[in-house]
Amino acid sequence: MELSVLNSTGQDTGRKVTLSDAVFGIEPNTHAMYLDVKQYLANQRQGTHKSKERNEVSGTTKKLKKQKGTGGARAGSMKSPVFIGGGRVFGPRPRNYSFKLNKKLKNIARLSALSTLARNNKVALVDAFTIEAPKTSAFAGILTNLKVAERKTLIVTAQKDEKVYLSSRNLQKVKVAEAANLNTYDLLNADTLLLTEDSLKTLEQLYSAE
Rank of each mutant, 00 (worst) to 15 (best):
D12R: 13
T13K: 09
T13H: 08
R15L: 13
R15N: 12
K16M: 13
K16H: 14
K16Y: 12
K16R: 15
V17F: 03
V17Q: 05
T18G: 10
L19F: 05
L19M: 05
S20E: 11
S20M: 09
A22I: 07
V23K: 02
F24D: 07
F24V: 04
I26V: 15
E27W: 15
E27K: 15
P28A: 09
P28Q: 06
T30Y: 11
H31V: 15
H31S: 11
M33Q: 00
Y34M: 10
L35V: 09
L35W: 04
V37R: 03
K38I: 12
K38V: 13
Q39Y: 03
Q39A: 02
L41R: 14
Q46F: 11
Q46H: 14
T48K: 14
K50G: 10
K50C: 13
S51H: 15
S51V: 15
S51E: 15
E53Q: 14
N55W: 10
N55A: 15
N55K: 14
E56V: 10
T60W: 00
K62D: 00
K62Q: 05
K63E: 01
K63R: 08
K65F: 04
Q67N: 11
Q67T: 07
T70L: 03
T70W: 06
G72C: 10
A73N: 01
A73W: 06
R74Y: 10
R74F: 10
